[in-house]
Design a protein around this nucleic acid. Structure first.
Length: 448
RNA sequence: GUGGAUAUAGCUCAGUCGGUUAGAGCGCUGGAUUGUGGUUCCAGAGGUCGCGGGUUCGAAUCCCGUUAUCCACCCCA
């Protein structure tokens, strides 16, 4: 049987796995700094739950076997982490403390044509804050501040969080008597302006029956990138600016949380998810890499649990598209995976026959001191052993033979500096612990 | 899901008009160097030319199908 990759299901070599896991660790650390609890939900959901968000049917991977197992209920893999959260919250509402703050880092699956930075299986790193009956709008400002913290901590090139608010377009639609369900079509076409040009957009919109005045106002609005000019456009057209003021407050509050004004900006062209978001919406881009699309999106949704009945659970959340982000960093050469092994030291074996147990003891001591350690068990000479450490990216080699064991003075070689020092095991351990290598980055980020 | 481009060694790629035994660099293996890697020098291994079929005396090269990758849509992280 021939083996080959499956389209859209990426796999990494160890060095990239290590780098990606390190990104996840840093994201998790930031999420926990903001007091979010971890959550993992099952990969499988009932199909009617998955379809509760809207028309995602074409993207869902259905499961044949699961349906056979469980009475005839159709099942599928989750395509995001928000729908499982909504189901989970309704199911466990009695035992959760609200507002419920959780983060969730898991793979999701979407049956779309794979492309660069677009996969069928990928990681999402979600945070959401879910209230019971109500949710203070302050959380709509906290979310972008958290994302700013995460991206700043990752030391990526500058990120820009684009924000808008669905209610601004609701006001717009009410003013011009446009049905709410026609908004996505309107924005979808408007968003293509920079590609197809103003004339083409006007033509398409007029074919769809949008009047000339609303189209002009809408085009003027999406051209705005600050509150003041947007306010002017809306006022002149007679559209209420109350929702715009809410967005303005949200941005100001995000600034108070520590998200600098340079990292967050209004963008009225965001058309994403307008069918289920009910308030603020977010899309995050890496400056200079707009072609890669949004690496982190979300918004406020008041009605996501509507279909399950019972109480309302309004929420606000956002998701980092980790697989896309990592793929961007790699392909744009913004990240270099440094090592294929997490080990900090390789215990070499000069004299396996006489000191085998002693080598194992050295390793045990090192690991006991919290130093990730690999022992060389091959049959090659010292030069090749050091070479193995080098190829794996292990920064140190511990060298011991007859003399060293006799004196209990061992050699520690720093491969990068090609320097060697001698000392007792305790001395070498403390050197390894204080050395930056123990907490060394598993990748190097360039930029910023 | 629709349309298009691409596929040669582990990697990056050459390969003329369809013509004998498909090449290079890097990497890999061995040696110079049996207690010290990276540099250098020498030698070597490694290919169903993505896969399947067709045309032809003869196919990496032309045709069809298929799979993967990339691009544009759709949509989205």
């Amino acid at each position: 049987m021939r083996v080959k990759p499956i389209s859209g299901f990426p796999e990494h070599l160890p060095a990239d796995c290590l780098a990606e896991q390190e990104l996840i660790r840093q994201i998790r650390t930031q999420y926990e700094l903001y007091g979010f609890s971890p959550l993992e939900t099952c990969a499988v959901e009932r199909m009617d739950v998955l379809l509760s968000k809207g028309d995602m049917g074409r993207q869902i991977y259905g499961l044949t076997r699961a349906a056979e197992d469980d009475s005839s209920t159709d099942m599928g893999l989750h395509f995001d982490l928000t729908v499982p959260l909504a189901r989970y919250v309704v199911q466990n509402a009695g035992q959760l403390v609200f507002p419920f703050r959780r983060y969730q880092i898991q793979k999701v699956w979407r049956g779309e044509r794979a492309q660069k930075g677009r996969f069928k299986e990928f990681y999402q790193c979600d945070i959401d804050i879910v209230g019971r009956q109500s949710l203070d709008p302050i959380y709509e400002a906290e979310v972008p501040a958290i994302i700013d913290s995460v991206f700043s901590a990752l030391k990526l090139p500058q990120h820009i969080i684009h924000v808008s608010d669905r209610r601004i377009w609701d006001d717009f639609a009410a003013t011009f008597d446009i049905a709410a369900d026609r908004l996505p079509a309107l924005l979808g076409i408007l968003d293509k302006t920079h590609k197809v040009g103003v004339e083409k957009v006007r033509e398409e919109l007029s074919q769809l029956g949008f009047g000339e005045q609303p189209v002009t106002v809408a085009m003027n609005l999406i051209a705005c990138h600050d509150i003041a000019s947007a306010s002017a456009v809306l006022s002149e057209a007679g559209v209420p600016t109350t929702s715009l003021e809410l967005l303005s407050e949200t941005i100001e509050n995000a600034n108070r949380f520590g998200c600098p004004a340079s990292a967050i900006r209004p963008d009225f062209s965001i058309a994403r998810g307008l069918d289920y978001y009910t308030g603020t919406v977010y899309e995050t881009f890496i400056d200079g890499y707009l072609k890669w699309g949004s690496v982190c999106s979300g918004g406020r949704y008041d009605n996501l649990t509507e279909i399950f009945g019972g109480q309302k659970f309004p929420g606000v959340g956002i998701s980092i598209g980790l697989s896309r982000l990592f793929s961007l960093l790699k392909q744009e050469d913004l990240i270099q995976s440094e090592a294929s092994s997490p080990a900090v030291v390789l215990v070499t074996m000069l004299d396996k026959n006489n000191y085998f147990d002693q080598y194992l003891n050295l390793a045990r001591e090192l690991r006991g001191a919290g130093i990730p350690t690999e022992v060389y068990f091959g049959k090659k000479g010292l030069g090749d052993q050091i070479s193995v450490a080098d190829k794996r990216g292990i920064p140190f080699a511990l060298i011991a033979g007859e003399t060293e064991f006799a004196n209990q003075q061992f050699k520690l070689k720093d491969l990068a500096k090609s320097e060697e020092c001698t000392g007792s095991l305790a001395e070498l351990i403390s050197q390894l612990q204080t050395h930056a290598a123990t907490n060394r980055a598993r990748f190097v980020l360039s930029g910023k």
